[in-house]
């Protein structure tokens, strides 16, 4: 049974069997606008929580994507190279960025749940 959590940087993290899939929220893709390029981390890279590890580019500007948790990157979404607009069309599904193995699963539980994230974007 997978669980999804959210960060204040408008990323979602879905945990399945100890592997976390990371993407950006619908709120984030709407704010960015048309996405034309994504620079993804190399699999095997160790990241710390909050480290910038990817870049998403809209026509207008580049934005950093931060590792939501400490751990090791194990896979990136191959479909984004040819079709970065997947992130606009299906941010919570086909538009995922990368998968990682978190080094501390307790940190996952400390992220926002859906209700807390909904409250965050309602404030903005």
């Amino acid at each position: 049974m997978s669980q999804t959590r959210y960060t204040s940087d408008h990323e979602w993290v879905r945990l399945d069997d100890g592997v976390a899939t990371v993407g950006i929220t619908d709120h984030a893709q709407t704010a960015l606008g048309d996405i034309v390029f994504v620079d993804l981390p190399d699999p095997g890279r160790d990241v710390t929580a909050g480290e910038d590890c990817a870049v998403v580019e809209s026509v207008k500007a580049a934005s950093d994507i931060f590792a939501p948790l400490a751990g090791k990157i194990v896979e990136t979404n191959p479909a984004l190279a040819d079709d970065p607009a997947l992130i606009n069309r299906d941010p919570a599904g086909e538009g995922w960025f990368f998968r990682m193995v978190p080094s501390d699963l307790a940190a996952f539980d400390a992220l926002m749940d859906e209700a807390a994230y909904a409250a965050l974007i309602a404030e903005a």
Partner: peptide, 11 residues
């Protein structure tokens, strides 16, 4: 206004 429908569509 920086965009309405989206920059690509407007372009």
């Amino acid at each position: 206004p920086v965009q309405y429908a989206g920059i690509l569509a407007e372009h």
